[in-house]
C-alpha cells in the first residue's frame, strides 16, 4: 500500500525540480535516515514489548526450576537444564525421586501435555467449523436488504460484546445441574461433570460467543461483491446454487480465509471458557490452562511449555498463510482495488 502511495509523489517531485542525479540520491539517503529516526520509537517499543519477553522466555526455558535442598529446607537455584524442560513436556518425562527420570504419573501436569494438545486442536477444529458455517449463514442473511437490518446487525453483535469471562460464568450457571439447560429439556445431564457433555458445553458457549465475529468478517467480504456480477449471472440463467458456488464463494474467499485464520489462532489459545466452566476437568484442559497451572509450580518449565505452544500456533499460522492462501495483507489490497 505505502509504496504505491509514495510513487506518484516521487514522480511529481522529480517532475517539478528536475534535479541532477547526484542530489536525488542524496535526498533519498537523508530521507531514509529521517525515516529510520521516525520509526525508531515504535521499533524500540516493539523490542521492549515483544522481543525481550519472548527471548527471556526462551532463555528461561533452558534453566532448571529451583529445587528444594533437603539439608536446609530452602529452595536453591536449579542451574542450566539443557532440553530437559522440553523433554519433560514432549516425552512426558518427570524427575524420579532418586534422580533420573520416569514417565510422569497421572496427577502431574506433565502427564497431561499430549491430552491437552489433542483437546486444544479438537476444540479448534470443531468450534471453527461450526462458527464458519453458522457465521456464513448469518452473514448471507444480514447482507440482504430488509426492514430492521441494522437492528439485526447490532443484535447479532451482543454475544461478541460480552467479555469472555462473563460469558463463561453465564454458561456455567446455565449448565449447572440445577441450571436452565437441564430444566428446559427435562434432562439430568451432568454438564460439567462428565467428559463429552463438558466438551460440548464449552463448544456451545464458544460458538455462541464468536459466531458474530465470524459473521461480521464474512459480511464485510460479501459486501465487496458488486451487484452487477449477480445480475449478469442471473441474465445468463445461473441458478441460486450456481451463483453461490461460482460467484459468492470464490469472491468471498479472501475475507473468509482471514476470518478463519483469526479464529483458529484465537481458538488455539483458548483459556477463559474451560478455566471458568470446568477448571479443566473432564478432558477440557487446553494448552493455555496447562501453562497457567504450571506457572504456579515453576516458571522455567512453564516458559518451555509456552514456547512450545508458541511454536505450535506459529506453525499453524504459517501453514494457513503459506499453503491455504489466508493473507490479511492481500485481502486488504484486493478490497482496495474493488473500490
Amino acid at each position: 500500500m505505502s509504496t504505491e502511495l509514495q510513487k506518484p509523489d516521487a514522480t511529481a517531485a522529480t517532475g517539478h525540480t528536475m534535479p541532477s542525479r547526484e542530489s536525488a540520491d542524496r535526498k533519498q539517503l537523508t530521507q531514509g535516515r529521517w525515516a529510520y529516526t521516525l520509526l525508531a520509537p515504535s521499533l524500540i517499543l516493539l523490542a521492549i514489548v515483544i522481543i525481550y519477553p519472548v527471548l527471556n522466555a526462551i532463555i528461561m526455558s533452558f534453566q532448571k526450576d529451583s529445587g528444594l535442598d533437603p539439608a536446609t529446607g530452602f529452595f536453591s537455584e536449579g542451574g542450566p537444564a539443557g532440553f530437559e524442560n522440553y523433554t519433560h513436556w514432549l516425552l512426558q518425562q518427570c524427575t524420579a525421586p532418586g534422580g533420573g527420570s520416569l514417565a510422569c504419573p497421572p496427577g502431574t501436569l506433565g502427564a497431561q501435555f499430549w491430552d491437552s494438545m489433542g483437546t486444544t486442536f479438537f476444540f479448534t477444529v470443531v468450534t471453527v467449523a461450526f462458527e464458519t458455517v453458522l457465521g456464513f449463514w448469518m452473514a448471507v442473511i444480514m447482507a440482504r436488504a430488509f426492514r430492521g437490518r441494522s437492528l439485526i446487525r447490532a443484535a447479532v453483535l451482543v454475544p461478541w460484546a460480552i467479555p469472555t469471562a462473563v460469558t463463561a460464568k453465564l454458561w456455567f450457571f446455565i449448565f449447572a445441574f440445577e441450571g436452565i439447560a437441564n430444566k428446559l429439556f427435562g434432562t439430568q445431564i451432568l454438564w460439567t461433570g462428565s467428559e463429552w457433555p463438558a466438551k460440548w458445553a464449552i463448544i456451545i458457549a464458544d460458538v455462541w460467543k464468536t459466531t458474530p465475529f465470524m459473521a461480521l468478517l464474512i459480511l464485510a467480504g460479501l459486501q465487496l461483491i458488486p451487484d452487477e456480477v449477480y445480475e449478469a449471472a442471473k441474465v445468463d440463467g445461473a441458478s441460486t446454487w450456481q451463483r453461490f458456488r461460482l460467484i459468492t464463494l470464490p469472491l468471498v474467499k479472501p475475507a473468509l480465509m482471514v476470518a478463519i485464520l483469526f479464529r483458529v489462532l484465537d481458538a488455539l489459545r483458548m483459556y477463559d471458557l474451560p478455566a471458568i466452566m470446568t477448571q479443566g476437568a473432564n478432558g477440557t484442559t487446553t494448552l493455555s490452562i496447562l501453562v497457567v497451572q504450571q506457572i504456579r509450580q515453576g516458571f522455567n518449565t512453564a516458559a518451555a511449555l509456552s514456547t512450545i505452544t508458541f511454536l505450535v500456533i506459529f506453525l499453524v499460522a504459517f501453514i494457513f498463510v503459506r499453503f491455504l492462501g489466508a493473507n490479511a495483507v492481500d485481502a486488504a489490497t484486493s478490497s482496495g482495488k474493488a473500490k
Binding site: V54, A302, S306, T309, F314, A317
Partner: peptide
C-alpha cells in the same frame, strides 16, 4: 503474524 502471536504469548508468560 509471529509478532501478534508473540504478544499473546507474552501475556501468558507475564508472571514469569
Amino acid at each position: 503474524v509471529a509478532g501478534v502471536l508473540a504478544l499473546s504469548l507474552t501475556a501468558c508468560g507475564g508472571g514469569g
